[in-house]
Design a protein around this nucleic acid. Structure first.
Length: 157
DNA sequence: CCCTAGCGGTGCT
DNA sequence: AGCACCGCTAGGG
């Protein structure tokens, strides 16, 4: 489904377990897990409302008051660990790819951590934009570096 | 700035 | 099993 925001329409996908994909305006949403029967419309509508509010808050650089359940089960074990580590970065703070790798007990899997960030199916709400390269480098961003810059700038205040 | 070597997870063959 | 990706990094010019 589509979520209208001041920054444009985002595409959100839900599985029977929660929000499983979020795509920037003009981007294709990632494929949803095969275990994705169209669940109870009732419940999904509630998740969608929560998602819309959380997304708008996040885009404004604020901490969402409520979160929809996230279904990150499509990732490998390693990817899910990285994504959980991302969720532990407080709003307004940043980490390096190396710090993320260390945080999940794989201090040398730095590059793999970067790859896992790029595979994040729920950008913005799973804040992969808070991960920078070493020495203050911006690093990459699959949605486009403009989005990374915008999100970071909004959060610092 | 550039280049190189080394790194580890993932997906494809 | 092999291999070519990658949102990386430290070290050296």
């Amino acid at each position: 489904m589509t979520i209208e925001t001041p920054e444009g329409p985002f595409a959100a996908g839900f599985s029977d377990r929660g929000l499983c994909s979020l795509a920037f305006p003009g981007h294709q949403p990632r494929p949803i897990p095969s275990t994705c029967p169209v669940g109870l419309p009732e419940r999904i509508r509630g998740w969608a409302t929560t998602t819309a509010r959380a997304l708008k808050a996040a885009l404004a650089g604020k901490h969402p008051r409520a979160w929809p359940p996230l279904d990150l089960s499509a990732g490998t074990g390693f990817q899910q660990e990285v994504w959980q580590a991302l969720r532990r970065i407080p709003c307004g703070q940043t980490r390096t790819y190396g710090e993320i790798a260390a945080a999940i007990g794989r201090p040398r899997a730095v590059r793999a951590a970067g790859q896992a960030c790029g595979a994040n199916p729920v950008p913005v709400l799973v804040p992969c934009h808070r991960v920078l390269g070493a020495h203050g480098r911006l690093g990459g961003f699959s949605g486009g570096l403009q989005w990374k810059r915008l999100l970071l700038e909004r959060e610092v205040r």
